[in-house]
Design a protein around this nucleic acid. Structure first.
Lengths: 199, 199
DNA sequence: GCCGCGAAGCAAACATCTGTGCTTACGATG
DNA sequence: CATCGTAAGCACAGATGTTTGCTTCGCGGC
């Protein structure tokens, strides 16, 4: 007691940006570590080294936080490039997806989208929110293709033949074939038969 | 006070089987009602008219209960029939799946498998458990086809082209095309081009 | 017809997550 | 350099889910 009875404590306050960053990283870490189990606000807060109230106040709840993290990450790691051809665009997009879901992080991220829940009824809306962005990406690819005079397959087919396989594998942790998976899926979608034209 | 001070209460105790049945039904009901939100043990117990401790003691937790319910229901509503041809078997199987995921109940059921979580690290194993049964069903179809001299497509293709679209739609609540979806998917898988042979 | 095992019901303790009021630090503005 | 707004940190209160010990009923065996 005596002199230094009330140390101001070297505890430093994180800036808003630091908090955001630390929390995001904490979510990723927990997702990877425990396979997504026990992904609670208190756990995230502790991992991030921030107070849990900061999270509650900023994001409002687990769900919104997850959507934020997932959206941010996925759009960074699973981008939409312009390669000049429909096949190229789709292949690049699928390849990015494959690469993404090969990592535990990526898998859990995708799974997290589906998980969203529990406890909340407007989950549907937020899930849709994420999904809409994916769909929007695809739509842009289709539009560019159409502008070039190509005739892209309908959205439904892309959904069934590209997105579905990727998401399923991500969610259930099934590894994609070792190589050429993107080409395989895109080839199927665009109507390639057995062996197209060899290189 | 007087005579009937301590009524034995007409409260009757449910038999183990009654409990099992009531709880299962309660899970289904809650799944349909609130879109799966708030699927907690206390809520389920109340709905089923049983004491929540009965559920905890028998199943141990939400996850195990869900797996039980889902497995039971799915295998009842999404059976594996023998129609005599590979195409017939697959079509019937997909049709059952489509019918199943058209109901909110079915969708949530499938989603519940994927969701499983939260809190538990052996989730992977239990999810695999369910998935293994699905895979096993498919394998049996393939075996029968092979025994008849047909050459069924590899499992991976069935996974990507039949299971994946169904699961994706179930999980994200995307309705399948109004009609002919099963034929469409199976046709694609088995290599039909544009229009096969009209009826 | 008595006895005992298994399971359901009840109540209370426990742990945990969720949310709020208040204080205090950091950074921008004048 | 003083002031003000925003947001992080802290302590505590509230609600909810989870778990345990004990009692009581139903059912099969002796």
């Amino acid at each position: 007691m005596g002199v230094a009875s009330k140390q101001p404590t070297a505890r430093i306050r994180k800036s808003p940006e630091q908090v955001r960053s630390a929390v995001h990283q904490a979510v990723i870490d927990l997702l990877s570590d425990s396979e997504g189990a026990d992904l609670t606000i208190p756990a995230i807060a502790q991992r991030a080294g921030v107070n849990h109230t900061s999270i509650y106040r900023r994001w409002g709840g687990r769900e919104a936080l997850l959507v934020d993290v997932v959206t941010t990450r996925l759009e960074r790691d699973w981008p939409l490039n312009d390669t000049g051809t429909l096949r190229g665009d789709l292949t690049a997009w699928v390849e990015a997806g494959v690469a993404s879901i090969r990592t535990p992080e990526g898998r859990l991220l995708v799974r997290a989208v589906a998980l969203s829940m529990p406890s909340s009824s407007h989950t549907q809306a937020e899930r849709a929110q994420h999904f809409q962005r994916r769909i929007h990406s695809i739509e842009r690819i289709r539009e560019r293709a159409a502008a070039r005079g190509e005739s892209p397959p309908p959205l439904e087919e892309i959904l069934d033949q590209l997105i579905a396989p990727l998401y399923l594998r991500a969610i259930f942790g099934i590894d994609p074939p070792a190589s050429g998976y993107a080409q395989l899926l895109v080839g199927r979608l665009l109507g390639d038969t057995g062996a197209p034209g060899a290189a």
